[in-house]
Amino acid sequence: MKIFWTLLRRELGTFFLSLTGYVIIAAVTLIVGSTFVMLIHNMGTKPFAMPVTQLFFNSFMFWLLVILVAPAITMRLFALEKASGTFETLMTTSVGDLQVVAAKFTAAVFFYMVTWLPTLVGLAIIQCFTNQPKLDPGVVGGMYLGIFLSGCLFLAIGCLASALTKSQMVAAMLSLAVGVILFILAYMAQVLPDAAESATGALYYFNLFKHMEDFTRGVVDTRTVIFYATAAFLFLFLTLRVVESRRWK
């Protein structure tokens, strides 16, 4: 555990001490901010029928951000260490493979959540300066839970991609490709009437838009939570196996 905290501290350190970290935060803030501005502009003074959070997170903008930001955060994790050789010095100390994967993933998730913090300002502005109904804490909580869970899935994919290669570019491309595939699946689930109607259809579980819509209304569906949790675990498990694979004969 001691080693896990040391690793986590160092991983967070690289996020917050490097320029890339702040570039990512700035980019996310820019896109989120401009979306909010547009929302506020279109809102006028009339109260909306649905919470503002739902308006924003149902836009494609949100998913575009997730798909782009997750690879940007995770591509460095293993690939850079492998390329520079520090992976070798790391793995010949007393660290366990699980500790390494867990620390890197936790740091990525933490950083990812930090990049979404500026949205709180947006919410505060809407709360204080518009005539929209008061935001329900459940809605806000659901929204961040949704960001967290979908983030976990995409970051876990990114971890796996990064563990598979020495090149950060390849890692980013791989996780981007998988992210886009997930996005297309979600889109299909959304537009194909059959899948949307029958809750049993496998595609239903991939309807990321629907999941997010629920979260932003403050509805936490256990099926959705379990979908994200298990999918993230699957990719993390695969990452662990890849890290271990160097010890296979």
């Binding site: 001691k2 080693i3 040391t6 001490l17 050789g85 010095t89 790391l90």
Partner: peptide
């Protein structure tokens, strides 16, 4: 110490060595 002596270039000397000592338990 592997070939080419890989280090974390963004860390400070003492900080790096302390980090390594912690990793070594």
């Amino acid at each position: 110490m592997p070939e080419n002596n890989p280090l974390h270039p963004e860390m400070r000397v003492r900080e790096y060595l302390k980090f390594r000592a912690r990793l070594k338990g």
